[in-house]
Amino acid sequence: MPQQVTRLILVFAIFIGIFYTVRSYFVPESWGEFGHYRGNAIREIAALETKYADIKTCIECHKENAGLLAEGEHASIKCQTCHGPGYKHNKYYELQGKSNTPDSASMSTEITDTSVSTENTDTSIQKHKSTTPEEFRLRTPDDRKFCLNCHELNSGRPEKAIKQIDVTDHYNMKKKCIKCHPPHAPNS
């Protein structure tokens, strides 16, 4: 073999060798596993933490309210729509064990605002709330604004989908909505 050919082959071999060494260094580990991207990216996204819990874990402890909700007009609403993300709350009670959870039988109402002196105020849920550390407490909205976020008369809302009220003429505007319409069973 002529000398120049040998040298050329040697040069090519060195370049190819360098190329593959550099390539293996720069191309990420799982590149091309499923396509033109890092396969591990999928796994990383899948491993992110959830904030909204599985609704089954809510029902496990709050059977009474879940039952009321399922039979009423608010049946299509799920717990966390009003009460906010519950993953931390549910995880906390999962670790605590079931002993500290509210007695489901006595949880027929959910009015928790202590400033409202009403016969409906349930001591059990209040106790449950006060023993829950603030970080794991869920919101129990009871203001008119919260209800009106969905129920205020608006031309864009389909009439069949929701009962709407005109705030200017609805009975007793100063009263909280939930005094007359308990949110878990708002049929009245």
Partner: peptide, 23 residues
């Protein structure tokens, strides 16, 4: 992300979970 991390835990996306009317 269509809440990919939730789908992979067998849960629906957060927007679906939060929708009150099933829209």
């Amino acid at each position: 992300t269509m809440c990919y991390h939730r789908l992979k835990k067998g849960l629906p996306p957060a927007c679906v979970e939060a929708c009150p009317t099933g829209a």
